[in-house]
Amino acid sequence: MVLGEPGAATPQQSPDEAAESSRRKRLTLESLPPQRYPNVVQAAPFLTFCADPEDHYTFGVDFFIGGIAALPLPR
């Protein structure tokens, strides 16, 4: 479950603390074994930074609704 946009500060964080937290998360993902997690390693910057919050949430809602729409109807 996603609780917020990647890289955004929580109410308890300053912008500098949020940037450092995002950097640490990116490095953690990038340090995973690339043979086992090639897609996660490659996507690490996108999973830890959000350039456009509106696009981030729009994509998330569209993705969720698309998944629901693809479910078979109950019989």
Rank of each mutant, 00 (worst) to 15 (best):
G60N: 13
I65A: 07
F63E: 09
A44W: 02
L27I: 05
R36A: 10
R26M: 08
E54Q: 15
P11Q: 00
Y57L: 13
P6Q: 01
E17F: 00
P33N: 15
A70T: 03
R26Q: 10
N39L: 12
P34W: 02
L27S: 01
R24T: 06
L29C: 03
E17A: 11
G66S: 15
F49P: 02
T10A: 06
F46N: 13
A70M: 03
Y57P: 05
E30Q: 15
C50E: 05
F59P: 01
R23W: 02
P45Y: 05
E5R: 14
F46Y: 12
A43L: 14
L27A: 09
S14L: 10
P6S: 06
Y37W: 11
P45A: 09
I65F: 01
F49C: 02
A70F: 09
G4D: 11
V41W: 04
E5I: 12
A9I: 14
Q42L: 10
A51Y: 02
G66H: 10
K25Y: 02
E5V: 05
P53N: 15
Q12T: 11
D16H: 08
P34L: 04
L27M: 07
D62I: 04
C50F: 02
F46G: 12
L32P: 06
V40H: 02
D55L: 13
S21V: 02
L47R: 14
A44S: 12
P53Y: 15
P38H: 07
R23F: 00
P38C: 06
F49D: 05
P6N: 09
A69C: 11
P6A: 05
E30G: 02
V40L: 12
A51T: 04
A69Q: 14
A69I: 13
H56K: 12
L27Y: 00
F63W: 12
A9D: 04
A69V: 11
Y37V: 01
T58Q: 15
A43E: 08
G7K: 04
P38Q: 07
L27W: 09
T58C: 08
L32M: 13
E20P: 06
V40A: 04
K25C: 10
A18Y: 05
Y37I: 04
R23T: 14
Q13R: 06
S22T: 07
Q42M: 07
P45W: 05
Y57Q: 07
E54V: 15
N39E: 13
L29K: 08
K25T: 01
S21M: 01
G66D: 15
K25I: 03
A8V: 05
L29F: 00
L29Y: 07
Q35P: 00
T10H: 03
A43W: 08
F63A: 14
A44N: 06
R26Y: 05
I68T: 12
P38E: 07
P11A: 11
E30I: 03
P15Y: 03
G7Y: 06
A19K: 09
L32K: 13
F49S: 08
T28D: 07
P53Q: 14
Q42D: 09
